[in-house]
């Protein structure tokens, strides 16, 4: 394991219990059910549970409308190319493409009610709350900029990510157990990439952002999968030789077992 990834694990574990700046009137205290999700050969997906509480002090004013919580989980970033097929000489080929630079490989927005009802559109935009308002910078002829919301490539990208279960927006993803205690289930499907997943919790009341807190967890491959994946990546030549030896042994074994003469 390389030094930076070890450092990031320490970061992830250290951030499991997070506090917000003390200056805010309301403070968020959150914790995750696990700090690392282990992907083994029988991994079929799981839920990471976030528990949180809204801490108030003596000066805190009463919020008549109650609190709203939006949890945003961002997976490791990757550059993804979206291809569009067009018919060229009778066959369908990837004719046009857009590269989305350093976009989240996983993105879940879990709110306690309709996000559009939580705050006005400008607040939501400014705080990048909701899938539709997440920045997805594209590389367009050398420049890197976010496109318009109705850009077909952007829409296709979001649609395909949602179809794979990697992007989601749930208006009932967070539930309040008491007026100040909340719980969110972060769904981790079986096809998630490994790495650090950042969790940002935003507290709204009466349409205004009051406080935010961050925490993180890590998705790792463990056991045999981890061994195979890291061997393939870090020791490609030895891995290739070992795979070839395995193939030759299997072939030889078969010829011995099924030998007729």
């Amino acid at each position: 394991m390389s030094a930076p990834s070890r450092a990031s694990i320490a970061l992830a574990c250290g951030a499991c219990i997070a506090f917000t700046a003390p200056a805010a009137a309301e403070r968020l205290v959150t914790t995750l059910s696990v700090s690392r999700v282990q992907v083994a050969s029988n991994f079929i997906g799981t839920d990471v549970i976030l528990f949180g509480s809204v801490e108030r002090d003596a000066q805190t004013v009463a919020r008549h409308g109650g609190y709203d919580i939006v949890v945003t989980v961002t997976g490791p970033r990757e550059t993804v190319t979206t291809f569009r097929k067009a018919r060229v000489f009778g066959i369908w080929v990837n004719a046009d493409s857009r590269a989305f630079i350093k976009t989240p490989s996983y993105l879940a927005v879990l709110a306690n009610r309709q996000i559009n009802d939580i705050a006005d559109i400008n607040t939501l935009r400014r705080t990048q709350t909701g899938l539709a308002r997440t920045l997805l910078p594209q590389e367009i002829s050398g420049d890197i900029a976010d496109s318009t919301r109705d850009d077909p490539f952007r829409q296709a990208f979001l649609r395909l990510k949602i179809a794979r279960g990697l992007y989601r927006e749930a208006q009932n993803g967070t539930t309040f157990l008491t007026p100040a205690l909340f719980r969110a289930a972060i769904p981790i499907p079986d096809n998630v990439p490994t790495g650090i997943y950042e969790v940002e919790i935003k507290l709204f009341a009466d349409g205004a952002l009051l406080s935010r807190a961050t925490t993180a967890f890590e998705v790792v491959k463990v056991g045999f999968e981890q061994f195979v994946a890291s061997a393939a990546r870090d020791h490609g030549l030895a891995y290739g030789l070992a795979t070839t030896m395995m193939a030759l042994l299997t072939g030889w074994f078969a010829s011995v077992v099924f030998r007729k003469d």
Binding site: E78, T82, R84, W92
Partner: peptide, 19 residues
């Protein structure tokens, strides 16, 4: 697969993974 119009014209593929 090549001649019939695909159900979805768009495909996505990670082209560069961040470490």
């Amino acid at each position: 697969d090549l001649v019939v119009q695909p159900a979805d014209l768009y495909t996505i593929r990670a082209t560069e993974e961040q470490p």
